[in-house]
């Protein structure tokens, strides 16, 4: 078996398309998981259990069922209910939702790590509850959890090939399609393998820069 640069060149245009989809899924999936995860965390602190119980049950369920099942479910069941989205939109939402059930645990740990004295100082200064959250607690909690969130971004990247199952052509989907058409497997798979490593490296650099900005 010899390495064929011609195959690499032929694959590249497809690769760029796939890369774009992977990055899009990763970026939007991350944002959704960051935002939804925070929403779950805050809802889990609601004073009434009529909020805490349903949120706890749903997130527990989502966390403990496979992402692939959720992708299929959303992709095939939602349209039956008259809700149609593009495959990519569905996929991004599913990934974001799935990972939000992990980020919520990260946020919770971050919030609990803020010393009680911070709450007490805020109360002593009479800060309203909402302001205590937004100006005192969350900024401290979030800067603590950026590294942990970053780990989930990397893991999310490695889950993006599952989108292939619902017809989204991200990098692996493109490589598979190309392979089937040209009977060349080594080159496209190697290219995307390297790409996954590079993207995760770049993502970690980005997150570290973000962390530095926040930690100042």
């Amino acid at each position: 078996m010899t390495w064929d640069w011609g195959a690499v060149r032929a694959f590249l245009p497809h690769f760029w398309d796939g890369l774009l989809v992977t990055l899009e899924a990763l970026a939007l999936g991350s944002v959704i998981s960051f935002v939804l995860g925070l929403v779950w965390t805050l809802l889990m602190r609601a004073p009434t259990r009529w909020v805490r119980w349903p949120v706890g049950a749903v997130t527990e369920f989502v966390r403990n069922t496979p992402l692939l099942v959720q992708l299929f479910f959303l992709f095939y069941v939602l349209p039956e209910r008259g809700l149609t989205f593009s495959a990519l939109t569905t996929g991004v939402f599913a990934i974001g939702l799935h990972y939000s059930t992990y980020t919520m645990q990260v946020y919770r740990a971050g919030i609990e790590a803020v010393p009680a004295g911070q709450w007490e100082a805020a109360l002593a200064l009479n800060l309203p509850r909402r302001r205590t959250w937004t100006a005192v607690i969350l900024p401290q909690a979030i800067r603590r959890v950026v590294p942990a969130l970053g780990n989930y971004v990397i893991s999310m990247l490695k889950d993006t090939p599952m989108l292939m199952a619902i017809t989204v052509l991200e990098m692996l989907g493109r490589a598979r399609l190309f392979s089937q058409q040209h009977f060349q497997f080594t080159e496209p798979l190697t290219v995307i393998g390297v790409a996954f490593i590079l993207v995760s490296y770049l993502a970690s650099l980005l997150l570290r820069a973000l962390e530095r900005r926040l930690v100042r």
Partner: peptide, 27 residues
């Protein structure tokens, strides 16, 4: 009532100035 704590409890995410202005502005 104002309180000063044994362990200061300043807000580490704010500058010294904002630690002092935060409550007068928002409260």
């Amino acid at each position: 009532i104002g309180m000063v704590f044994q362990h200061f409890n300043l807000f580490p995410n704010m500058t010294v100035l904002r630690n002092i202005t935060e409550a007068p502005v928002t409260v």
